[in-house]
Simulated assay, not measured.
Amino acid sequence: MQLMVTDKARRKLLKAALFGAASPILPFGCASTERSQVPALIGCSISGRDQYSAVVADDYGLPIRKLPLPERGHGVATNTRFNHAVVFARRPGTFFMVFDYTSGEIVKLSSAIPTRHFYGHGVYSNDGNWLYATEGERGTSKGIIGVYDVLSGYEKVAEFSGFGLGPHEVIVMPDDSLAIGVGGVHTNGRTPLNLDSMSPSLSYLSSEGELIDQVGLTDHQLSIRHLAHDGSETVLCGQQYRGEPVEYPSLLAMHTRGSKMLELEADPEQWARFNHYIASIAATDEWILATSPRGNCYGIWSKQTRRLVELSSLSDASGVVASNNHFLVSSGSGNVITDKYPSENTSINSNIQWDNHWSAI
């Protein structure tokens, strides 16, 4: 059944459009007129009180155009086959919005049915034909992967379940299987209800929805939240710690299907800087970078030794993407950091209050 847009969501979108739907952004000064206007990055932003946008940016993180959102956005998925991007509402989300990132045209605005919500993330299949979204059942937090047919106008055609409560991020692996960060937390809205009995996992599904692997961490109060893969077989997962506030366990791990989970290492006082929460993750051949908006910092780990090698302050550190063996990091302060560890990093201000995550095109 194809999900219809509620009147409330439609009214909010139309209201937001009054502020300039899909509005192009003028270059910053004369020097900026020579920069590329080719879309390379997409993320969500906060523009003001109850004003939320999706922002298409170039490969420096400088904005090209903004599209208003009916509510606060979270994760973004991109589809280069059709030049589509989809923004998912922040959990417990009520909508996802598909648009053409080259023109700014809105393709689809879908809302969750009353008994469901979105968890803020989704991903396209490798061939671009399918969109997978993390969803939950209101009242139970039962985890669901919604499957949408792109060629049929994003009609919902299937649901995968049976892997746990509270899935957050889903990514697609090179072999078309899905990796899901299952938080294991039953919530009412954003209020957790089962912290003593929560059961997080990193779960793998085949493209047909069969559970093919499932692993956990030694501490059941490490809620697995955000994921990335290294372009090959290794999944990186970032956690939110829901245990004792004075404890500072490892918040990052690596996993290859069929093997055990490997925790990344740092000193307890270094983990304390991350304030119990990892947001975005990206990896190059040698390094792994993870951000913490709650900790106002990001860290870089060696993939070979699994040890922290750099810890940098960044106010409201948000999204990260890997590009040409370096990282681009966004922030709620508007700063975009280019980190070429071990070389010195550089910073520009994008004039965008970046929120949560980035997705590379």
Results as ranks from 00 to 15, higher is better:
P70G: 07
A54P: 06
A282W: 03
P268H: 03
Y241P: 05
G181H: 06
D149V: 02
S110P: 02
L109W: 09
S333G: 08
F327Y: 05
G181P: 10
L3Q: 11
L62W: 07
Q270R: 03
M198D: 14
H229D: 09
V172A: 15
L67D: 09
L131V: 04
S259C: 03
S318W: 05
S207P: 02
S141D: 15
M254E: 15
H168K: 12
P114W: 00
A360R: 14
S259K: 03
D267R: 14
D176Y: 03
I113M: 15
V172R: 13
G43R: 09
R10H: 09
H84D: 11
T284S: 15
G295F: 01
L18Q: 14
S292D: 07
L202A: 05
G139K: 00
S259R: 08
R294W: 04
S331K: 08
D58P: 14
L264G: 04
E210I: 02
I337T: 06
R257G: 10
L195Y: 07
I180G: 00
V98L: 01
F88C: 01
R65C: 11
M1T: 12
P114H: 04
S323D: 15
A282E: 08
I42P: 02
D355C: 09
H186F: 08
S110F: 03
L202K: 05
D59C: 14
A77P: 01
D176T: 10
R138I: 15
V182M: 10
M173W: 05
V336D: 10
L314A: 07
V309R: 12
G43Y: 08
H276S: 12
V215G: 11
Q270I: 06
I348D: 04
N325A: 07
G146C: 06
T234C: 07
V246H: 11
D175L: 00
I212N: 01
T218S: 15
W271M: 05
L109K: 01
D355K: 03
R91P: 01
G164V: 00
E344P: 05
L193R: 05
A283S: 15
A17K: 10
Y52W: 14
L328C: 10
V329N: 04
A253H: 05
D50H: 12
G120F: 04
P39G: 01
E247S: 13
F327P: 00
A17N: 15
L222C: 10
I180W: 01
E286A: 14
R35Q: 13
R35V: 11
N325I: 01
G295N: 00
A283C: 06
L222V: 03
H121P: 08
A317D: 11
I224M: 05
G231E: 10
L328R: 10
S312T: 15
H255I: 00
V157K: 14
H255N: 06
G295C: 01
S302E: 10
N324D: 13
M1D: 12
L178K: 09
T78K: 04
E286R: 12
L217D: 00
D213N: 07
V98T: 06
